[in-house]
Design a protein around this nucleic acid. Structure first.
Lengths: 189, 189
DNA sequence: AGTAGCATGTAAAAAGTTACATGATTAT
DNA sequence: ATAATCATGTAACTTTTTACATGCTACT
């Protein structure tokens, strides 16, 4: 995870569409990016400062009547160049950390019930998410002919839909192996 | 990712089965754990020192004729207690970082060809892995009745098999959407 | 009255990666 | 000859998380 700071490219990527503040970025990240790469305020604000010092973005203070002042950033030519260069490079290997699998792997010390509870919690965590991704996929596929710019978003949502489905299918199979009939219905949340 | 240091529990979990050296642990991690939680030497050795200082493990120097000396660690009662306590707690949320989705999300600036190349590389990365996981699953399911202690391992391998399959299915669908017939055969490596 | 949202940040700590160092043996 | 394996470790660095700080407005 050392090496290139991806927070930089997320900021540049968002600003390549339109100017916005750090707070706006976090909101965008939460709804569309955080599923595969989350960024916190503690990373966002310092990185914005650094990018401005390096001339990749420029910020303009904006007065906001009644609300705190905003600092709206725009991408510069240099920022666009750096972003494009990164996009042309091959993507690094996927980085995952599944504590649930760690617990199951060492689960013989905890007993079957503990493993079952762990998997049930995992399933509950993704039951709603998988359905939601399916809805998004269906919607985006419908509007795609009229707005092909949604394709980039659709690709990432499709990914989520398939991976979450794999999660749920695995959970069902794992529970069966552990000798539990999967409970039907009422397992959302 | 702050909070609890999972390297600690990986070490304790491995030692709960049998005593071994740091080097042994890394080998075990590479073949069975690194797919869902990797640990490097730079984390392993300092953590071993800390765990010994805290009385969770004890190390014994072993002379190795012709080879470097080894330090073989064993888990203590206190270490077992800490491990069991962690196993009883609910697993934290999954942590993932997919640079490929980041690049695709901002891919409109790079063009379709770049997106296609990105996805092809991703597919090549997992084509072999998915097949391998399937082989492991089949093997483990066959030996399971005779050695039920393999169940914990099987659960994690099943997870990998399903997720890697989802990766490949997504890649095929994504390439189709981008207007590329998926190339048949010879796409390993 | 209390919570959530708006909006920006800082500081400390933890976690993780990378590069380096040593040096013998064994396989290609 | 060269590379890989065995075996341990350190140091510097980067990245990420968490907790704190401020203060106003709008909703319940």
């Amino acid at each position: 995870m050392a090496g290139d700071n991806r927070t930089v490219y997320i900021i540049l990527g968002l600003l390549s569409h339109e100017p916005m503040s750090g707070y706006d970025m976090k909101k965008r990240i939460n709804v569309s990016i955080s599923r595969f790469w989350d960024v916190g305020f503690g990373q966002l604000y310092p990185t914005l400062k650094r990018l401005e010092a390096n001339g990749m973005i420029v910020g303009a203070g904006e007065h906001n009547s009644g609300r705190p002042d905003r600092r709206v950033y725009s991408i510069t030519g240099r920022g666009r160049l750096v972003l494009r260069r990164w996009l042309a490079e091959p993507a690094s290997k996927e980085y995952v950390r599944y504590e649930i699998l760690l617990k199951l792997f060492f689960g013989s010390l905890a007993g079957q019930e503990a493993s079952i509870a762990t998997i049930e919690a995992f399933r509950a965590r993704y039951a709603g998410a998988a359905d939601l991704m399916q809805v998004y996929v269906d919607d985006l596929r419908r509007v795609l002919p009229d707005s092909p710019d949604h394709l980039c978003y659709l690709l990432t949502v499709m990914f989520g839909q398939r991976v979450y489905k794999a999660y749920l299918d695995w959970a069902a199979e794992a529970l069966e192996l552990l000798g539990t009939r999967p409970s039907r219905g009422g397992d959302l949340q």
